[in-house]
Design a protein around this nucleic acid. Structure first.
Lengths: 341, 341
DNA sequence: CCATTTCTGATGTACGTAAATCAGATTTTT
DNA sequence: AAAAATCTGATTTACGTACATCAGAAATGG
């Protein structure tokens, strides 16, 4: 049987109340007594029964998710996953609330974070916009003792406890190698469609992509990045234009969201030429395009995993427990026609 | 606040004891009363607090993992993950025990399963060997009301509640497409190294691989399968031999374990020719080979995820709860040089 | 050395559920 | 109509922990 607080008390030769004071870091225990108890805890290998503890506390973890009000499939998917978590929340003793902030607006995000300092939730998850004021606001929350995790997009240099998202440099590198290998030894141009170079994940993906292209596939040259602002119509126009003007294009890497316009443009041009295309994010549109051959591979991050992982980590931090690192590593999914979920 | 049993009792106009009888399917409740209580439960949306229930029951889930005594990296890894789960088990109110059975021995496996019928653990996880007697033994356990999940290798036609493993046909198909695309339009022979065609996962991988090869890459022809029994030395010998005899070989698919021998053989031959190689299972050896270019891609199943998923599912079944399907889908990892964990 | 402060023990209640017991109320059987 | 069987209610204890209260012990200050 698992040791309980009673066993510690007996082992340390103190009363239950003292053990409780030590365990919950309450005052009123002499230093030597405290050490005696701590030794006993270690020796008999006591681990607090979190379920019983939470029951006694009547605790519910109140978490806040801050998500950008972006109108693209990925953010919709992320939102849906947060909502699914909200639906499950009563069972898991969590009380999850979402806060929407304008996309790519550091000031608004920082303000939202500062509001939470007074609310003191048990944890905060946010899709970070990479800016100094956001970093500072996050650090203030952390200083206040509130667990903070970033989701999808990280915040380098901040004190956030955890990042639940993929390694975007690795994603870009992987895209480059896939594209390069799929193109065999062919020489030509590669078009890159991004949302905006102001967003950290997009910058990182491009960085990784360009690095591998330069190192390993000198026959392929990257054209100036097309910024489609994650907008289908804009992407359609820009990509159509590029394909018309440059017939040296043999490959496309779409590292942002809003692939609907890209796919439309590709289909229009596909009659006269064969292109190898790698895109990010599995949505209904990209899935269909992968199956009909318009896209050759999709790199994906599973929003559901990211949300669940963020919650697990926040819970663990709130309870002062450790997490299973391997379980919380968000993987880069590579989908071909054959391994779609 | 979440409704409790007291709220149901009040709402249904019955006592706590009656509610308890209904909730735990104990006898002694008239049909009409039972329905009254059940209506109240639905109406106020009561969900049992599993943590409190397990605390009251003093319950610990006793699970049994049946793993084959195979001496290869993958099974060692799987074992390590089970051991890690055992180490965490006190915290999670689980008591996990492992049973080793000889590999590929249906009779021994069936016997081990039947032994468990008398023990009545709260759940059983097994790496299945695909044979009728195993299927029957599993069905007997299920009939006895014991949750059963298969791990890594499934058991078709059985009543097992869940399979925590990858879709091996999809894995084979994915390998074929990767290999085909990496080889560009080249024509030539493809060697396939398997452990044994008696193992279901290997058969399925080959099936998927052959299907896509036939459909999409008519220029590539698959040579007769080399069965290396997952043994490094045997694999080394057979692969060396094949590479010497057939210089039309331009691609290799290793769908089994024991890649050490394969890698050695490839390195010996790599001086005179370039081969494109896809292998299964990420181990120290395959990782090194991927990084140095001997292998071009690795398909992997994460043993840690499989074990944790199996435990989660068993727990949910034991508690009569539902699982989050998306979370329990074991994904096929595709690793290139750039996205190694 | 007494008064005060700080520490420790003993005890009880609570969290939400499980499970047992016993008394009383129904229904069914004889 | 009485006896037996079945159902229902009330109450209690327990699970492991948190937290509060109060009394008494030990240490500290003056």
């Amino acid at each position: 049987m698992r040791p309980t607080v009673h066993d510690i008390a007996a082992a340390a030769g103190v009363s239950l109340a003292t053990v409780d004071r030590v365990l919950n870091q309450r005052p009123g225990v002499r230093h030597v007594t405290r050490e005696k108890v701590e030794t006993a805890i270690r020796e008999i290998g006591y681990v607090r029964d979190v379920a019983a503890a939470n029951l006694a506390k009547g605790r519910t973890y109140s978490f806040v998710f801050i998500v950008p009000a972006s109108d693209n499939s990925f953010m919709h998917g992320l939102n849906a996953e947060v909502m699914a978590a909200v639906a499950r929340s009563p069972v898991e003793r969590t009380d999850i609330r979402t806060v929407e902030v304008p996309a790519f607006d550091p000031t608004a995000l920082a303000a939202a974070l500062d509001t939470l300092r007074t609310e003191r939730p048990a944890g905060v998850a946010l899709v970070a916009t990479d800016a100094p004021e956001v970093r500072d606001a996050v650090d203030r929350l952390v200083q206040d003792g509130i667990p903070v995790v970033t989701v999808v997009s990280d915040l380098t240099g901040s004190q956030r406890h955890h990042y639940a998202g993929v390694d975007n440099i690795a994603a870009g590198r992987t895209a480059a190698r896939l594209l390069g290998r799929f193109l065999g030894g062919a020489k030509g141009d590669v078009a890159v469609l991004a949302g905006s170079m102001l967003v950290r994940d997009h910058r990182e993906r491009l960085e990784g992509f360009a690095a591998v292209m330069a190192e390993e596939f000198p026959g392929l040259s990257i054209l100036p990045v097309i910024e489609g602002r994650d907008d289908p119509d804009m992407a359609h126009m820009l990509v159509s234009d590029a394909l018309s003007k440059r017939d040296g294009i043999i490959g496309v890497y779409s590292l942002g969201a809003g692939n609907r316009g890209l796919i439309r443009a590709l289909k229009e041009k596909s009659v006269d030429r064969a292109l190898t295309v790698i895109a990010h994010e599995l949505t209904d549109h990209t899935r269909t395009a992968l199956l009909d051959g318009t896209i050759d591979a999709i790199l994906n991050q599973d929003a559901g995993h990211e949300v669940r992982s963020a919650i697990r980590v926040l819970k663990a931090k709130a309870d002062g427990l450790s997490v299973i690192d391997a379980q919380e590593r968000i993987r880069l999914d590579i989908f071909l026609k054959d391994n779609l979920p």
